[in-house]
């Protein structure tokens, strides 16, 4: 069977399976936390003239929540589950004893995770922006700014998913390494002078954001951001490289599904 067809078959089956999974719905619920907060804030400040609580909350709460917490964690849980779930549930054998390339299996499963993440993150961001900014979204400037946020979220989702799919193929317990990366490396590195920041995904994601936080919190920039086009290309390239490496590892590596009972 041709590779694209195999990928499509795997994608179709696992997307249906994921939509029935409770974890997917829990993650979807979590993505709407900033929306709820924004709605409450808007309701409380309704009728007050000159209130700019919406944009402030969007920049200081919704954006950090989605870009520094939700998207990386979604990538970690979704990406690492591509192989991890198959090993934990001992179902990998059902896929590897069929006439499909292992790379098709992995790409199909990674595609499902990326699609689900995008399907949650982008609407959540869009709604947050719409609630935070109100009618500004209808202006050309508002649309352009929203487009930049959506682009950053989309590329961040792909890059984090790719990275954690790769970790999932390499490690038995990728979640611990992933958490160390997200909350350790990415956080600490932003305070290290020099070009070390370029060794994180978050640097390129932040470089795509149209609004920079005023020198505090997770989105602080110690260095100049990379140019937008450069950042976008790097994120795309990283996503592709992570996925190619993951397929190579997955194809060659032997996975022992249970304790050896020889």
């Amino acid at each position: 069977m041709a590779l694209p067809t195999s990928i499509a078959v795997v994608f179709g089956f696992f997307s249906r399976l994921s939509l029935r999974n409770r974890r997917t719905w829990l993650l979807m619920g979590a993505a709407f936390i900033p929306i709820l907060v924004l709605l409450v804030a808007r309701a409380v400040t309704a009728g007050r003239t000159g209130s700019a609580i919406g944009p402030v909350l969007f920049h200081q709460m919704a954006v950090p929540f989605l870009f520094t917490l939700y998207i990386p964690l979604m990538g970690l849980l979704g990406g690492s589950s591509c192989v991890g779930d198959e090993i934990d549930q001992r179902t990998l054998v059902f896929l590897t004893t069929r006439p499909v390339k292992k790379s098709a299996v992995l790409v199909g499963k990674a595609g499902v995770q990326a699609a689900i993440s995008l399907g949650i993150v982008l609407p959540a961001l869009l709604l947050s922006f719409a609630i935070g900014f109100g009618s500004f979204i209808l202006s050309s400037e508002g649309l352009a700014r929203l487009g930049k946020y959506l682009l950053a979220a989309g590329l961040a989702t792909l890059a984090y998913t790719g990275l954690f799919v790769l970790l999932g193929t390499l490690m038995k317990k990728p979640v611990i390494a992933g958490i160390v990366y997200i909350f350790g490396w990415e956080y600490v590195v932003q305070f290290i002078p020099g070009s070390t920041q370029h060794l994180t995904i978050s640097h390129y994601v932040k470089s795509l954001l149209p609004y920079k936080a005023a020198g505090e919190g997770f989105l602080m920039f110690q260095l100049e951001p990379s140019p937008v086009l450069h950042a976008a290309m790097v994120l795309l390239l990283l996503s592709a490289v992570f996925l190619v490496l993951a397929t190579r590892v997955f194809s060659q590596k032997e996975y022992v599904l249970s304790e050896p009972r020889v």
Binding site: Q89, R90, T91, V93, F94, T96, T97, R98, P99, V100, K101, K102, L257, S258
Partner: peptide
């Protein structure tokens, strides 16, 4: 993988 067009496998695991 091409070989598995001609091979069927029933694993022991109840998965």
């Amino acid at each position: 993988p091409g070989l598995f067009q001609r091979v069927g496998f029933c694993p022991e695991n109840d998965a």
